[in-house]
């Protein structure tokens, strides 16, 4: 009890301290790095709160992918405006104090209200736990995401596709200069990649499979796969293309097509929309989701409409 309380207090203080450093830090680069650290400490906090699925999502997406995107953006900013390197790009600060006070009051109120809440007897959450047996998966998070509230997950796939399309809309008319300059790379990079990239695929597929009964699932697995793609494009193994190739366009919408196609099939076969015919269907949908999650994340990172292998 004593030790765990100390850990919790340290985590809470660390989170607040890191958040303050991220927002009020003197340099943009430092803020980005600390934001990644914040995400990792947040993942620890989720783990302490017995929410391992959230912890993994936070580490993979909140810290990993978001941090990578922020760093890419920073590099681009420095490229565009070299003399401003390291300077904070945050705007006027006279609003900072009132906004900070307001946010503090709001957080205080919400925290206070949350403490008032009695633990509910029959919530949607307890109902989901009770009905988990009929789903064929024993991880309640996967049960909720795929079976009870699959519609939300399906629409979230639309949001991911939108993120890609939105980036395309903003970038249209602006030619992106892919880093074509051949940089000599350290000799160990190739060896390291040949070790790490197969591992990301292995871990991704493991997470997907494990999602049925333990923390994991399509989102975490997709993020890990995307990390493999990020590594390959960082080291120049994957290079941007001008247009999205047909296969990659298909992969981007695969999750949506498979999930809603199966749902519509069940609907017109006389069952309810998005009801799944068995555990195999859950894994099929999750596999499609994983692939359709990984590709847009990797493409967003590469700031490219598509990717191809070097030398093609």
């Amino acid at each position: 009890m004593g030790i765990s309380l100390v850990i919790d207090v340290l985590l809470a203080l660390g989170l607040v301290g890191l958040a303050l450093q991220v927002v009020a830090g003197p340099s943009l680069f430092r803020s980005i790095v600390l934001f990644v650290v914040f995400g990792l400490v947040m993942a620890l906090a989720w783990a302490r709160l017995h929410a391992p699925d959230l912890a993994m999502a936070e580490a993979a997406i909140g810290a990993g992918i978001t941090g990578a995107l922020l760093l890419m953006t920073y590099r681009r900013l420095v490229e565009l405006n070299p003399e401003k390197r390291g300077e904070t790009y945050l705007g006027s600060r006279w609003l900072a104090a009132p906004v900070g006070v307001l946010t503090g009051v709001l957080v205080g109120l919400i925290g206070w209200a949350a403490l008032q809440l009695p633990p509910g007897d029959t919530t949607a959450g307890t109902l989901a736990r009770d009905a988990l047996d009929e789903t064929g998966v024993s991880n309640p998070v996967t049960g909720v995401l795929l079976v009870f509230r699959g519609y939300d997950t399906l629409l979230e796939m639309g949001v991911l596709l939108l993120a890609f399309l939105g980036a395309r809309a903003v970038a249209s008319g602006r030619a992106h200069s892919p880093g074509t300059s051949e940089v000599s790379e350290p000799a160990l990079v190739g060896a390291l990649l040949s070790l790490v990239v197969p591992l990301t695929i292995l871990v991704g597929i493991y997470l997907l499979r494990a999602g049925g009964h333990a923390p994991g699932g399509a989102f975490q697995a997709g993020a890990v796969l995307a990390a493999g793609g990020v590594l390959l494009s960082l080291t120049g193994r994957l290079v941007p293309t001008d247009h999205t190739p047909l296969v990659q366009r298909l992969v981007l919408v695969l999750g949506l097509l498979v999930f809603s196609g199966m749902g519509l099939f069940m609907l017109f076969a006389g069952s309810a929309m998005l009801s799944l015919p068995g555990t195999w269907a859950i894994y099929l949908v999750e596999t499609a989701l994983m692939i359709s999650i990984a590709l847009p994340l990797a493409l967003l990172f590469a700031q490219a409409p598509g990717l191809k292998g070097r030398g093609h």
């Binding site: 919530t123 949607a124 109902l127 989901a128 009905a131 079976v147 009870f148 509230r149 699959g150 519609y151 939300d152 069952s271 309810a272 929309m273 998005l274 009801s275 799944l276």
Partner: peptide, 13 residues
């Protein structure tokens, strides 16, 4: 009305 996935509210949507 239609309960998606055949799960009635509040469990489903």
């Amino acid at each position: 009305a239609h309960s998606l996935g055949g799960h009635a509210a509040p469990l489903g949507i």
